[in-house]
Design a protein around this nucleic acid. Structure first.
Lengths: 375, 375
DNA sequence: TTGAAAGCGGTACCAG
DNA sequence: CTGGTACCGCTTTCAA
């Protein structure tokens, strides 16, 4: 994997001198202006300023102009803490994801922002960084901010985390996975079924020696692997030496290493199901490096159908999950509950998945009969 | 770009019935427990509970045990709003980035979390979603939360946004780019110089017909393009028909389309500088699709040196920016200022950049003499 | 070691 | 339409 790579240093380099201490002359820290300051400057009472800001139409335009000028003059920004305390409303929707930077959450977060921001809600995003421990802390932190609802990725919170959420008194939407026992409302898909379907798809294409690679075995990756194991068992196919996993986070390079590990044991590998598209891309590159033709010698299918899958060469087949839809749906449910008090008919909503079939599993040479896909 | 792709529907599909309204039976909304509730249950005063939570050693272990039990029993979570109001400390560091999901911010955000969380700070991340307007709003939202410092990506805030930051009274670190006129402290690198260096590097390798592609021309992309234009002009090389940009967000598919657009005009393209690695990857795939050998026919260099660049086939050369370092440095500066009142000697810190030279610009066949690289 | 009282900066509820 | 007055939940004095 360590490709020939030379580094050329350019520009200024970081040196320790940058951190030479230098006592602050004066902790000037001009106190932030408050409602009272604005009121004084505008020559009105604090209440009036508050109203001018929240319900502008309840204040005469003359005063409103003076107040706006004062606000601008002082660069006044209302203190949410005080506001929250006085009004009991925060307009904040808490969002917890496993990672801020995994491409899987990109569309989902975009959907949440797209849907909630225009409605006047604030989206407060936290990352559990794939750690149950950190998730628990983050839940507590988030609750301390009194969000009006919580949208959390995954169904496997710690018992304590779950209790905090249950007792929070606000709507909680668990997403991405499906569970029989949701905290409150559940919008997701069966990762296990999806893993099963991907494997079955490869089996249906006539493959027998099908491998599986996964990185950082979080609950969802585990579920997909269960699906793989189940599909292989149902088809009475052995999996010896065909599975490679790593506790490291998923990455393109890991994808190359994992398929490499399998190939070193099983040079007769026919097809590979990768737990996510980064691994699939890495696997594709590794095959190119080893001069193994994809899909003619090895078929590859990924998971999530990230943007790059469709434009790789060959394009990579993948299990597509409706992440934007899922986010939008979660956001809409939340808003309905908060604003109208209406809850969805079902506490558990299956958003399903599809398989995007592309060149990495479709040899041009030998088109094959297809069967219906189902578990 | 539209590769052959067939979709296979599986699993439950989303239908409108999921959103059938269903009035809430009882807005139970059990009121959240407060410090007073805990105090009552533990049979002590509120102050004591507060102390037991903040400074456990100031409270007898007997009471502490009773209080902990009550806290747990009630699933009590302190209200940060009240806490902030009473204590004037939030332990929150505000972070604004252009996008939560662009890989460029991954290492940077990780560094911020890695450095700030262990020190007891809370990292509050907002995204401006590449919009000056939204950035301005987000700055106001963030200030309302009274962060103890602000770390913001980019140097091109709106005048009003800038004023808000200046008046906030807290340390502000602008990152990623370098400016002569920082709001407070600036930790970054010259994107223009980096763009110049990447272009110069290609020129030094003997290329003349060098193209440039960029998506979503934010300020940083612009700066890189300036660098490209300048380097080409300095070398007296024409750029007609060699530049392709799109206002769409960057993506792998855009990378393919952009190089395609250039190739359609200039089939004699020799080398390509891509504004980021996604574009570079897309360009590489497009070349493979068109049976153009990289680097023998076309050299490609990307920007940022994201993880996948090194493991592509061939590995993609890229301008490496020290994003983790930059994040760590910004976080350390912030903590020093907040906790010791020490400010860095320089208000402007250049973290530099390097060029990771790899296979996509190094034909095995014709190694070349190299010159020192500099603007 | 524990408790009582006084706000922090807004907003809701009344009165004027 | 405008202003006075509680009070949100917690922490920081200061006393006991």
């Amino acid at each position: 994997m360590k490709a020939l790579s030379r580094r050329i240093d350019l520009g200024a380099r970081l040196t320790s001198k940058h951190l030479i201490a230098h006592p602050t002359e004066e902790p000037i820290r001009r106190k932030r202006s408050t409602l009272a300051d604005v009121a004084k400057l505008a020559g009105v009472s604090a209440v009036t300023v508050s109203r001018a800001l929240r319900h502008p139409r309840m204040v005469s335009s003359a005063l409103r102009a003076r107040i706006d000028a004062a606000v601008s003059e002082l660069a006044y920004v209302p203190d949410v803490a005080a506001s929250r305390l006085a009004s009991a409303r925060t307009h904040a929707i808490g969002v917890i994801v496993s990672s801020l930077t995994n491409g899987v959450f990109a569309d989902y977060l975009r959907a949440l922002h797209d849907t909630l921001l225009p409605a006047g809600f604030q989206v407060v995003v936290f990352s559990s960084r794939y750690s149950a421990d950190e998730e628990e802390k983050v839940i507590a932190t988030l609750l301390g901010q009194h969000p009006e609802a919580i949208i959390i990725a995954g169904i496997d919170q710690t018992p304590h985390g779950r209790r905090l959420l249950e007792r929070s008194g606000v709507p909680v939407i668990q997403t991405f996975e499906l569970t029989d026992d949701p905290i409150d409302i559940n919008v997701g898909l069966s990762q296990r079924q999806a893993g099963y379907a991907a494997t079955q798809y490869l089996i249906d294409r006539g493959h027998r020696r099908i491998g599986y690679t996964a990185a950082r075995l979080d609950a969802r990756a585990h579920a997909r692997m269960e699906g793989y194991n189940r599909a292989m068992a149902d088809a009475r196919l052995p999996t010896d030496g065909l599975v490679a996993t790593t506790p490291r986070p998923s990455s393109v390079s890991a994808g190359g290493e994992l398929i490499g590990a399998i190939l070193d044991r099983r040079s007769d590998l026919e097809a590979l199901f990768c737990c996510d598209d980064n691994l699939a891309l890495g696997a594709l590159f590794e095959c190119q490096r080893r001069d193994i033709a994809v899909p003619d010698q090895i078929s590859i299918i990924g998971f999530n159908d990230l943007e790059f899958a469709a434009c790789a060469h060959p394009p990579i087949s993948s299990v597509a999950t409706p992440r934007y839809e899922m986010g939008r749906l979660a956001a809409e449910i939340v808003m309905k509950i908060i604003e109208i008090g209406e809850r969805p008919a079902d506490r558990r909503i299956d958003v399903g998945f599809t398989i995007s079939e592309r060149g990495s599993t479709m040899p041009v040479a030998r088109p094959q009969a297809r069967r219906a896909l189902s578990e």
